[in-house]
């Protein structure tokens, strides 16, 4: 019972985090059919910058965290501009390789500037644990899903009710018509990469206090989030968040009951199985074959 509760709490926490990062994949994919494979590095960047601003420069959290997220947004813009756009113009798929390389580059730049030691991003929410049904829970673990869902909802509101947000939805739903409305679709694509990276940065800041901050912390998060985005079908934000929770819970369940050595094998085997049965993801819409 205690094990089950512990697994549930861990699963929901991690799942919402994966969902948040996966949302970033989904947004750029719907806007431009591209994804930023350096998304994991953006998770890392958010956490590292949060540490640098708040711990090294002593900024208050209220200033340091938003600043870190903003910087992630800028990094996303740079990724789009230098690593995606040149290839998109040529209709080449090399953006895939380029963003991977961008991730390697970023990880290593951070390694040499931030240092090679793992650090801790302190948070008052991990100093004391609460006892929930016999298992210890840090307030941060409760905060993560709440914050993640909050961010997702806020983003949704932003899309629906602001002029630029609507414009972004328009680009997603009909690129050509969006151009004819006078929407600068190039800017929108860049914007989607910025938002995507900011989501990743957010996730990095949320998970960092439970984990440690170091230059290669994001790689696995990025990969798992990519799996989540794919499972969610890459089309709907809700589906992606839901897929995040499912993935998190399955992962925590496997870790708890089979041991963490089997997590990757079991979870990824399930991913392949699901995609074999539903090639466009758990909640993806099958495209109608157009002839």
């Amino acid at each position: 019972m205690t094990l089950l509760i512990a697994a549930l709490i861990t699963g929901i926490g991690l799942g919402s985090m994966y969902g948040l990062v996966a949302l970033g994949f989904q947004i750029t994919y719907s806007v431009s059919s591209k994804v930023n494979f350096a998304q994991g590095s953006m998770v890392m960047l958010g956490a590292v910058l949060g540490f640098v601003f708040c711990e090294q420069y002593g900024f208050p959290v209220i200033l340091g965290y938003p600043l870190a997220i903003l910087c992630c947004g800028v990094a996303g813009i740079l990724v789009e501009f230098f690593l995606v756009r040149p290839f998109a113009i040529r209709n080449s798929e090399a953006w895939l390789m380029a963003t991977v390389a961008g991730g390697i580059l970023l990880d290593n730049v951070v390694l040499f500037t931030f240092g090679n030691e793992p650090r801790t991003l302190p948070s008052n929410l991990v100093s004391e644990s609460w006892n929930v049904f016999g298992t210890g829970v840090y307030p941060q673990q409760i905060l993560i899903p709440i914050a993640a869902i909050g961010v997702a909802l806020a983003l949704n509101a932003l899309f629906r009710h602001t002029r630029q947000g609507r414009a972004l939805l328009a680009v997603v739903q009909n690129l050509q018509a969006a151009k004819l409305m006078g929407i600068n679709t190039t800017v929108m694509v860049t914007g989607s990469f910025a938002i995507s990276s900011m989501l990743a940065g957010c996730a990095g800041l949320l998970i960092a206090p439970l984990f440690s901050v170091h230059s290669d912390m994001g790689t696995l998060f990025g990969l798992k989030a990519f799996a989540v985005a794919i499972l969610g079908g890459m089309t709907s934000a809700y589906a992606v968040m839901l897929a995040g929770f499912i993935y998190g819970l399955v992962e925590a369940g496997v870790t708890t009951y089979l041991g963490s050595s089997y997590t990757f094998i079991v979870v990824f085997a399930l991913v392949i199985a699901v995609l074999t049965i539903k090639p466009s993801g758990l909640f993806g819409r099958a495209a109608i074959k157009k002839v």
Partner: peptide
């Protein structure tokens, strides 16, 4: 009990 270097959480094993 075994755990992975990237595990965020070792509570299940310790429990």
């Amino acid at each position: 009990e075994k755990f992975e270097s990237n595990d965020v959480d070792v509570v299940p094993q310790l429990t």
